[in-house]
Write a protein that binds this DNA or RNA. Structure first.
Length: 427
RNA sequence: GCCCUGGUAGUGUAGCGGCCUAUCAUACAGGCCUGUCGAGCCUGUGACUCGGGUUCAAAUCCCGGCCAGGGCGCCA
């Protein structure tokens, strides 16, 4: 069993004997001395092999990326530029790596996306890639602990479903024994049903599937959605919960991940509340740029870039027209063309979509039909609204996109261990 | 779904009708080197996505397939 990590060396005293395990990232052999750069999940150490020591003669047999175990001592003085050094007394090869490697870990060559993802296990041995997932994990942990502190219960809802959440066009169809079924695009309907069950605050972290044939740096066909739903709440309550959750996620990331402030573009937790701008204000700003947005039209990428350039980081766009929002979104009492909805944006990237929901069953049924959907397919859902459904609100947050914008990754696929996109279902 | 671009050694590239027996880097193998650390130096190994077509001649031009990256739409 492994007892020490490479980074533990920083707390050890000179002369102490211990065993380090890891990957032989690089091997350099000179006439009178040899070096192995040993890597484990905590970092790098230079293992120095003196000519008169036993393992010197076997250095040439170790291939890059082989897994080795080194016993040795902590040196009096660290001479390596890596900042950590260890003097080998014996080395055993636990598993030899084949060569050449499918992609180099320390080679000074670029690697294409395709090659990287075809060999993702190897790609992730690069610290700059694996740390994305340490960041993602820490962000999620911060959000999760925050939601738990606010009285939320984490739930798991089905991913194989019989009806579409908001339509049918963009769902993956699967064979479910003798029936047709779909992979769920969102836990939306289930979250709401749980509100009717008397659990007042629920959240779920789980996969969402979209069969859209997009091919962009910000879309995945399978992504991780952080979804919440809260009873006796409106869209403003949901926005507060969201900005605080994000702030706690970032704060936990910055606090717990080594070197976080150096590879993140978000250097400190954002201040709350996040700026808010209404859809109509956006339209008016765009009009100042000579861009006309038609009534009830969605904002496109180019338009969102213009809006996004006015803000430092996160901001909300609120009160979207009802045309561009799903049937379960409630409208403003005084202006029924607009909804109690919001998107959380970071520049032009949409991270979250949320709203206060419709809780009156008759209005909800009408809205389903207005969207051209067959309300009888939603009976399992509508039924839960007829026996005491509180007013409620919630949101869905894309975890990969959140990670992407915080780390300023050029492509959202980088924030997914094994991305599923228009053409990739492997590995 | 529409549109654009690209596929050359393990990896990343140059070449874009004959000078290609295909460039360079990195990797790999061997050698040299007083502790190296993007080590350095020498020698060697290793490649034109697939199928048709045009041509005296195709890595290079045309068509199709497969694979990839991106733009739009749509969305998290």
């Amino acid at each position: 069993m492994k007892k020490f990590f490479v980074a533990d060396l920083d707390d050890r005293v000179p002369g102490e004997k211990l065993v380090l395990n890891g990957w032989a990232q690089d091997i350099r052999i000179l006439k009178n001395v040899g070096f192995i750069v040993l890597r484990d999940q905590t970092g790098l150490v230079q293992v120095t092999v003196k000519k008169d020591s036993g393992p010197f003669s076997m250095l040439g047999d170790i291939s890059r990326e082989s897994v080795i175990s080194v016993s040795g001592t902590v040196p009096e003085k660290v001479q390596s530029k890596i900042g950590r050094e260890f003097i080998a007394e014996s080395i055993s090869i636990l598993n030899m790596a084949e060569s050449p490697l499918p992609l180099g870990i320390v080679d000074e060559v670029e690697v294409d996306f395709d090659t990287r993802f075809n060999n993702r296990f190897m790609d992730l041995r690069k610290t700059e890639h694996s740390r994305i997932f340490r960041a993602k994990s820490a962000i999620l942990w911060g959000i999760r602990t925050f939601l738990m502190s606010q009285g939320f219960t984490e739930v798991q809802t089905p991913k194989i479903v019989s009806a579409a959440t908001e339509g049918g066009a963009d769902l993956f169809r699967v064979r479910y024994f003798e029936k047709d079924a779909f992979l769920n695009q969102s836990p939306q309907l289930y979250k709401e049903m749980l509100i009717a069950s008397g659990v007042e605050r629920v959240f779920e972290v789980g996969p969402a599937f979209r069969a859209e044939e997009h091919n962009t740096p910000r879309h995945l066909n399978e992504f991780t959605s952080i979804d919440i739903e809260m009873a006796f709440a409106d869209h403003n309550d949901a926005m507060h919960m969201l900005e605080n959750a994000i702030t706690m996620g970032i704060s936990n990331f910055l606090k717990t991940v080594p070197d976080a402030e150096n590879f993140s573009i978000v250097k400190k937790p954002p201040e709350t509340p996040f700026p808010r701008i209404t859809y109509e204000e956006c339209v008016s700003i765009l009009s100042g740029h000579g861009i006309k947005v038609g009534k009830g039209e969605d904002l496109n990428n180019e338009q969102l870039k213009i809006i996004g350039s006015r803000f430092e980081g996160f901001y909300f766009i609120t009160h979207w027209p009802k045309e561009v929002r799903p049937f379960y979104t409630s409208v403003l009492e005084d202006r029924s063309d607009f909804t109690k909805s919001f998107d959380l944006q970071f520049r032009e990237i949409e991270l979250t979509s949320g709203a206060q929901r419709v809780h009156n069953p008759q209005i909800l049924k009408n809205k389903i039909e207005e969207k051209g959907l067959d309300s009888s397919n939603f009976e399992f859902y509508l039924k839960t609204f007829r026996y005491g459904m509180p007013p409620h609100a919630g949101w869905g947050l894309g975890l990969e996109r959140l990670t992407q914008v915080i780390l300023n990754l050029p492509n959202v696929r980088e924030a997914s261990l094994f991305p599923r996109d228009r053409t990739r279902v492997f590995p």
